[in-house]
Design a protein around this nucleic acid. Structure first.
Length: 945
RNA sequence: GGGCCUAUAGCUCAGUUUCGGUUAGAGCGCACGCCUGAUAAGCGUGAGGUCGAAGGUUCAAGUCCAUCUAGGCCCA
């Protein structure tokens, strides 16, 4: 038997079947970096419509984890897809460099007693190191960005920019000085951040303390309980507290308006507690009693009760936070020493100036405090309890052990303590204009959200949030460069001008320019009357103002130049509704009157296969580096793109295994495409689409449809639909249909025949389309494909952009007038083909055939299906991949069907079809007629498939 | 405890934007078979869900309503 294999046009390509991703990806990364691909894309895109994604700065501490990878890869997919869409898409990466965690790192490494200037110096160096570390990680992910020129919030220009942003907000009147309870450590002598507080067990006294009704309010209290008069003798509202030291600072009682309160008669006078807690309270008081009347919490509002040992009547304030879990249902309110206490106080319109705070920074009461002046609060507890008892107001006293806040540095108990801070006011009304809250609400309304529910979430947060406290008592941060009058505490009247002078110095020397500044340099003789504030700005102010001083200052090329929001998109984890989205929104509104972004996109957090969050302790974490080293970053990217990122992102071994399958399928499909256009010259061999065979034109229509849908999905940021569409296209449209049918024609017809060039024209377009559609998600593989195309001269009209697929835009696919008709009729043909496959499978199972080419089929069809099949003529057998196919017209659907039988003919030694004309040329007895013609004659004619 | 979100075959997702309607779809994986001219590939056939749970509204619910469970983000 002659070997006809060598007479076939078999696929051939240098594109390897296996990606070998972990090994080869770093090479691509290096090439993109070395060739300055990002910069070249920007240069080539200059003048196109802009798309600005403003990068939210990750905190410069620690190696990147999966969450970082998710975030940056999504951004990269978007920037790449927008570039391919024909936008000038910028990506200026940034880092958040100031703040507590870095200060702690320095403290951990160098001890706790460094002078602040030294802390800042070390922190700056540490942050710079971390930026470089993380940058390496991000670059390895294949993220294409301006890595040579990122923004860092600690850059001098940015530090100065923040001061200018603050100046602008001060000038516009958004900033005020007020009180706020903060975590306070006596040993530090300063405020602590939440992160510096840890919880440990602590023994505390727990006391129930009675507040007698004020004489002037006895009748009103009787009315509240629906009584004609109050019983004679003591009537006390009882509170329960574990911090007796706050009693001297008591200024109110809080009740819940929704709860019911009971007036209880006991042997020790009458007491008021929540009705639901009467039994537990009496047990604690070791008293018996009867409820003689009840009243709703709201009825008690504003009644005055007597402080247990000071001559001071305090009001009842209704507060919803008061619960019934423990205590008495009545809460003692010391606004200087509790967050909720303080909020309740201000919520009732009471002045912060009236808040009474007798505890000094070192934990000692001021000397002027009666009875306890000069005592440390922890020492004063028993003395105070004794005083309460002597006043007849102590209903119970026990020792309890509870979880209590401690300083993580000194391991000593921490308290809440009201201190002076600076705020951005949410409800300050600009003259004849809006409040910040109103402006922000309108800005949220004007913003597009992906997914849509983000709008509701952010709007609810804006509606409820308190004023923004922007001051912190830290070392490593941007200073709030205010001079405050020593007596009044007021800002210097020239503050805006002074701030600009400070900004100029910070621009040159960094934040130390302020900390080192001698006030006299700016204030002259006035300096004696002013204190230089040492507070720093909340780090949310750092990142929240990046749109102001990064996009409009240090990186002007990364902004939109049309006067509106500077960015088209901010994209972060859904936790940033409270964080960066909000701080940016507030500064945008305060500075510009609108949000700095047009749209917000959020992604969820990564979880394990069971939907549980990843943690070190659970041991269910997956690191991006690990995936990159084992499977390749491309797999990680494809995993991310195939998930619906609006919810949680599940990742596990099995999930990644499935992703690998998807990758292989896509890769092999492209490999086959490349292998079959190896001898195709897209310029010299190009045929007009009108001359193509019908099925090739159908394939082109399918491809155009795919590109349109995928393009729209990119614009809508619906990447998982893209992966599904690509996979479906590769498996169903190509592998299971078009390519399967095409093999015979590609392999057996003459190399330069119309039949073959028509197919290759379609394959060339499919390849050019797929490589681009894949590129945003799988940039490594796309670039590899691009290189093969380029080196083989397969880019034809795109030869000007041989360097990188990213230098192109979507493939320009010919539009066909009869696309809709093609889709419709071939849809019917494919349904028939599926039916035929089932019949052949039955025959195969019976042992009648192996390959489908061993069979002849008879197709009975009616109506449109018959017309479609009839139009194929003799090519029907190629569509069904059988050696023979007979079409019979029937009149009704019921008569339709397919039957198959093993062919009685002889197998052609070349094309493997079983044909009656095998051997018709005596010189080539093993060949069928068309193979003989293809090899030695004019070649077969094909018009449809 | 509050706000927002998620819960469809083993896995990843669809399920017709504003208010429901025939046997709930796809790809992957799996099973079985074919091919050996995409071969550490390719093709075919097939088996898998009653839509987180139990209720309600309705002639009719995966699709609406309240509840619960599990999970996520942010607060308290």
């Amino acid at each position: 038997m002659a070997d006809y294999r060598s007479t076939l046009n078999l696929p051939d390509t240098p594109f390897p079947m296996r990606g070998d991703l972990p090994k080869r990806e770093p090479g691509w990364v290096k090439q993109w970096q070395d060739s300055k691909l990002y910069q070249r894309i920007r240069k080539q895109s200059a003048g196109r419509p802009q798309f600005v994604l403003h990068d939210g700065p990750p905190y410069a501490n620690g190696d990147i984890h999966l969450g970082h990878a998710v975030n940056k890869i999504l951004k990269d997919i978007i920037v790449r897809s927008m570039t391919l869409h024909g936008f000038d898409a910028s990506f200026i990466p940034g880092w958040d460099c100031h703040g507590l965690p870095i200060e702690h790192q320095i403290e951990k490494a160098h001890g706790k007693s460094l002078p602040p200037a030294e802390v800042r110096k070390l922190a700056r160096a540490y942050a710079a190191e971390q930026v470089e570390l993380q940058k390496k990680g991000f670059v390895r992910l294949g993220v294409l960005a301006d890595w040579d020129r990122p923004y860092r919030t600690m850059d001098f220009q940015n530090e100065a920019g923040e001061i200018r942003a603050l100046k602008e907000m001060v000038t516009k009147g958004w900033v005020y000085r007020g009180l706020k309870p903060v975590n306070w450590c006596f040993d530090c002598g300063s405020a602590l951040a939440e992160a510096e507080v840890e919880y440990q067990d602590k023994g505390s006294p727990a006391v129930d303390v009675g507040f007698q009704i004020a004489d002037a309010c006895r009748q009103m209290l009787a009315d509240a309980f629906g009584l004609d008069a109050l019983p004679a003798g003591k009537v006390q509202a009882v509170i329960w507290t574990t911090t007796p030291w706050t009693i001297p600072a008591n200024q109110a009682l809080n009740v819940n308006g929704e709860h019911t309160y009971a007036l209880v008669r006991t042997a020790n006078g009458h007491v008021i507690v929540a009705r639901d807690l009467v039994d537990s309270c009496l047990a604690r008081f070791k008293l018996e009693g009867d409820v003689i009347a009840t009243a709703q919490g709201t009825a008690l509002a504003d009644l005055l009760f007597q402080h247990p040992f000071y001559v001071r009547d305090v009001p009842v304030l209704v507060a919803s936070y008061v619960g019934l879990d423990a205590g008495t249902g009545i809460v003692h309110c010391a606004p200087a020493y509790g967050v909720e206490d303080f909020q309740t106080w201000t919520a009732h319109g009471l002045a912060t100036e009236e808040v009474f705070g007798p505890v000094q920074a070192n934990g000692v009461y001021i000397d002027a405090l009666p009875l306890f002046g000069g005592m440390h609060i922890w020492k004063a507890n028993p003395v105070i309890i004794d005083t309460i008892a002597k006043a007849g107001a102590l209903l119970s006293h026990e020792k309890i052990t509870h979880s209590y806040m401690h300083c993580w540095r000194h391991k000593t108990p921490v308290i809440y303590r009201a201190t002076a801070q600076f705020f951005v006011g949410m409800d300050i009304r600009q003259p004849e204009s809006y409040t910040l809250r109103e402006c922000a609400a309108a800005a949220v309304e004007a913003t597009a959200f992906y997914p849509e529910w983000g709008k509701e979430r952010l709007a609810a947060m804006i509606a409820k949030r308190p004023d923004w406290c922007i001051s912190r008592q830290r070392n490593w941060g941007v200073p709030i460069p205010f001079f405050l009058h020593k007596e009044t505490g007021q800002m210097h009247p020239d503050t805006p001008d002074l701030m600009e002078q400070v900004a100029l110095r910070v621009e040159r020397e960094g934040v130390d320019a302020w900390f080192n500044l001698d006030p006299a340099e700016l204030l002259g003789d006035d300096a004696a009357h002013y204190d230089k504030l040492t507070d720093t700005l909340d780090v949310w102010f750092d990142s929240g103002t990046t749109h102001w001083h990064v996009l409009r200052g240090s990186h002007q090329d990364g902004r939109r130049g049309d006067g509106g929001p500077v960015a088209d998109l901010y994209l972060e984890g859904s936790d940033q509704h409270r964080g960066w989205f909000q701080s940016s929104l507030l500064t945008g509104c305060a500075l510009d009157g609108h949000a700095p972004y047009r749209a917000l996109l959020t992604h969820g957090f990564t979880v394990d296969a069971n939907g549980h969050k990843m943690s070190k302790s659970a041991g269910n974490g997956i690191e991006p580096q690990e995936v990159g080293n084992k499977l390749g970053i491309e797999i990680l990217r494809l995993w991310l793109a195939s998930a619906d990122y609006s919810g949680e992102l599940s990742i596990s071994k099995e999930i990644l295994d499935r992703v690998v399958e998807t990758y292989r399928r896509l890769r092999n499909t492209v490999r086959f495409l490349l292998a079959n256009i190896a001898d195709y010259d897209p310029v010299a061999h190009k045929l007009p689409v009108a001359k193509w065979l019908t099925i090739d034109r159908y394939a082109l229509a399918l491809t155009r449809d795919l590109q349109e849908r995928v393009g729209n999905d990119y614009l809508a940021f619906e990447f998982h639909k893209i992966v599904q569409a690509l996979q479906h296209f590769a498996s169903e449209d190509l592998g299971g249909f078009y390519l399967d049918i095409l093999k015979d024609r590609l392999y057996t017809t003459a190399p330069g025949s119309l039949a073959r060039r028509s197919a290759q024209g379609a394959l060339w377009h499919i390849t050019q389309t797929l490589v681009r559609l894949m590129a945003p998600i799988m940039p490594f593989t796309a670039e590899e494909i691009w290189t093969v195309l380029a080196e083989a001269g397969k880019n034809g009209p795109y030869a000007a952009n041989l360097d990188s697929v990213m230098l192109t835009t979507w493939n320009a696919l010919p539009m066909q007038a009869d696309e809709a008709a093609l889709m419709e009729s071939w849809g019917r043909i494919r349904a028939l083909r599926a039916q035929s496959a089932r019949v052949l499978e039955t025959l195969r199972a019976e042992g009648g055939i192996g390959s489908s080419l061993q069979a002849d089929v008879e197709v009975r069809a009616a109506g449109a299906t018959f017309d479609d099949l009839a139009a194929l003529g003799d090519d029907l057998r190629f569509v069904l991949i059988t050696s023979g196919a007979t079409l019979i017209k029937v009149e009704s659907d019921a008569e339709q069907g397919v039957s198959a039988a093993a062919s009685a003919q002889v197998k052609c030694g070349r094309c493997w079809h079983y044909r009656a004309d095998v051997g018709s040329n005596p010189e080539h007895p093993e060949l069928c007629g068309r193979c003989d013609s293809n090899l030695h004659g004019e070649g077969e004619m094909r018009s449809h498939a």
